[in-house]
């Protein structure tokens, strides 16, 4: 319930109008949204029980490793609610396959749709979505760690919350099923980071400072 209460309100995209090129416009709009999502994500992380008990270095490491996974849980969650073919980055930024392909995000589109289909097939609840997002951050396999014991406590607390929630619903298999979706999430996040870096470096699409810093931390 704490995670549900601290879940940030969805952001809206600010449509870029600095260029006539529609695929570039899409990317600039998306990158601006992601940069603001990252700011919100960092504030959100501080409110997860146990996160502030980690050392500053470990907090940085987890966010540097796990930020894209945490953001993509949100994108896949919003996209699975619709049986359609779109990726819902924001209520006013829905990209279909053709728009993603034109923007150089064909791989990302396929993988996030796959993830969204998996969440949809599971009929994932809001409680599960917010917990999975926190678990993705806690489980991001940052290395080396300053204080592995604090991280263990942080992970155990989230795992226990997930188990308690599922037991209260009489669902003994769902916690495991949710955790088994983490490899696909990691693979999808890796694709997305590579795609955004490629667009920045090869197509010279400008990226905001915070987003660039976080992309380069994963490069």
């Amino acid at each position: 319930s704490h995670l549900l209460l601290t879940e940030p309100a969805p952001l809206a995209a600010n449509q870029d109008d600095s260029t006539e090129d529609s695929s570039l416009q899409t990317l600039l709009t998306l990158f601006d949204l992601l940069n603001r999502e990252l700011l919100v994500l960092i504030g959100w992380a501080k409110q997860i029980p146990g996160f502030s008990e980690l050392s500053l270095l470990d907090q940085m490491s987890l966010l540097q490793s796990g930020w894209m996974e945490a953001l993509l849980v949100g994108v896949a969650w919003r996209s699975q609610a619709r049986a359609g073919e779109e990726l819902v980055f924001a209520g006013n930024l829905r990209l279909d396959a053709a728009q993603c392909r034109a923007a150089g995000l064909a791989d990302v589109y396929e993988e996030v749709r796959h993830l969204a289909a998996r969440y949809r097939a599971m009929n994932m609840s809001p409680e599960e979505a917010v917990t999975l997002k926190a678990v993705a951050l806690a489980n991001s396999d940052a290395d080396p760690l300053d204080c592995p014991d604090s991280l263990q406590r942080f992970q155990d607390g989230l795992h226990e919350a997930l188990q308690d929630y599922e037991s209260s619903r009489g669902e003994q298999h769902r916690a495991g099923r949710l955790l088994m979706s983490l490899p696909l999430l990691r693979q999808t996040a890796g694709r997305a980071v590579q795609a955004f870096l490629r667009l920045h470096r090869q197509r010279r699409v400008p990226v905001h400072k915070l987003l660039l810093e976080m992309l380069e931390a994963k490069a």
């Binding site: 409110q47 500053l56 540097q64 810093e213 931390a217």
Partner: peptide, 15 residues
């Protein structure tokens, strides 16, 4: 940690 200075600053700011 100079390379990650924005994240560092954001985490240090009180909530």
């Amino acid at each position: 940690k100079e390379k990650h200075k924005i994240l560092h600053q954001l985490l240090q700011n009180s909530t």
